[in-house]
Simulated scan of single mutants.
Amino acid sequence: MNEKESPLAAQASPLRPVRGAARLAVVALALAGVAWTVRAVWHIRLAMAGEPASGPPDQGNGVHRPLNALEDSYHLVSSAGGAVTVVCALVFLLWLDRVRDNARALSGKEPRYQYLWLFLGWIVPVVNLWIPRGMVADVHGSVFPDRRLPAVVNWWWGLWLAGLCGGVGLIYADSTDEVIARAYTGVWPLLAADLVIVAAAGTAALMVRTLTAAQQQRMDEVARTDS
């Protein structure tokens, strides 16, 4: 994780186009926000319908009753939302990989965190509380050491942690049937988590646009100087 000077890095690492990756990331984040909004709508529908007389889907002791139409549709909504979230994560990492490479080329410095942390930093317990934000901050700080980190980075990270650690957000400890039971008995924590995650997706999209615009401006300045 040590930062090392590498005067030849800019020559050895050509700048990579980043606008296309940024657009894809923004679209993916928007779709993730829509997916979680739809999930929130289904939480409200479940709460308004009320728990059936037959009780929750998970009856306990390994017994599950047949799902009704609304519960079955929630399973589909939940699965689709999970798939969209996975795609969004991959596209976001593609963008982050590109801006990291460009930051190294522009600054002549190696990233603070090695390439492996681009993936492990999100899933290794404890360190996932700061490494992803650190990688994003490093992208900006290595190119613009005299500029303050845009506030949107901290807003994004705070909302991400709230959604990650809220217990009913990005990581459900319960099964889908148990989440359905939660919607029947206490929907407000679920809706609060949904709102946080939608807000995190929105601020992430704004962060991608902000950092990409700054880096693209620096790349354009380098191109004009070289020409």
Rank of each mutant, 00 (worst) to 15 (best):
G141L: 04
R209C: 03
H140L: 03
D101W: 01
W188L: 13
A199C: 06
D174G: 15
W160S: 02
G186C: 10
G158R: 11
M219Y: 04
D220Q: 15
T225A: 15
A205S: 13
I131A: 03
K109G: 05
V208P: 04
L118A: 03
I197E: 10
V187P: 10
L211I: 14
G202T: 03
H140M: 04
I171A: 09
M135T: 05
F144H: 05
W122V: 10
A193M: 13
P189R: 12
V168N: 13
A200V: 12
S107T: 04
Y115A: 14
K109C: 07
D194R: 15
R112F: 02
V179G: 07
G166A: 07
R104L: 07
V139S: 13
A213C: 08
R133W: 02
A193N: 15
G169Q: 13
A199G: 03
V136I: 08
A205W: 13
Y172V: 01
G158S: 15
R218T: 00
Q215S: 10
V139I: 09
G202E: 14
C165S: 09
Y184D: 07
Q215C: 10
D174I: 01
Y113Q: 05
T210P: 08
P132K: 11
D101V: 05
L118D: 01
Q217H: 13
C165Q: 07
N102Y: 02
L195D: 03
D226M: 14
V168H: 10
P111I: 11
Q215K: 15
V127P: 01
G141H: 06
L120S: 04
R104W: 00
E110C: 08
A223Y: 00
S142M: 09
W122D: 09
R147M: 02
R218I: 05
T176S: 13
L190T: 10
P111E: 06
V124L: 07
W188N: 08
G163E: 04
N154H: 13
P150L: 07
A181Y: 01
V187A: 11
G108S: 04
R112A: 08
A103M: 03
